[in-house]
């Protein structure tokens, strides 16, 4: 279908991004845009919040913005 997603918002996908480089919440949201995942905005926020709580990434300030990251 035209609405089938080509990007999936999963813990594994988020982990891979955060291992690669520190990202802000906005950076992450850009990777999982609703038009790519087929999720609503609310679902995206809720699922991403649950994933980040589980991953419990390291945090650091870069240019006055909170960035999350993981080490392998």
């Amino acid at each position: 279908t035209p609405s089938s997603s080509d990007v999936q918002l999963t813990e594994d996908a988020v982990r891979r991004y955060l291992i690669r480089k520190p990202m802000t919440t906005k950076d992450l949201l850009k990777k999982f845009q609703t038009k790519r995942t087929g999720l609503s905005s609310e679902q995206t926020v809720n699922v991403l919040a649950q994933i980040l709580k589980r991953l419990n990434p390291e945090r650091k300030m870069v240019n006055d913005k909170m960035h999350f990251y993981l080490t392998e």
Binding site: T25, K26, L28, L29, S41, V45, N46, L52, K53
Partner: peptide, 20 residues
């Protein structure tokens, strides 16, 4: 739009602040 992205980022940060 960027404003929707801003709103989503703010909502996500609010969720995480409750946790952190």
């Amino acid at each position: 739009s960027s404003s929707e992205a801003d709103e989503m980022a703010a909502a996500l940060e609010a969720e995480l602040n409750d946790f952190m």
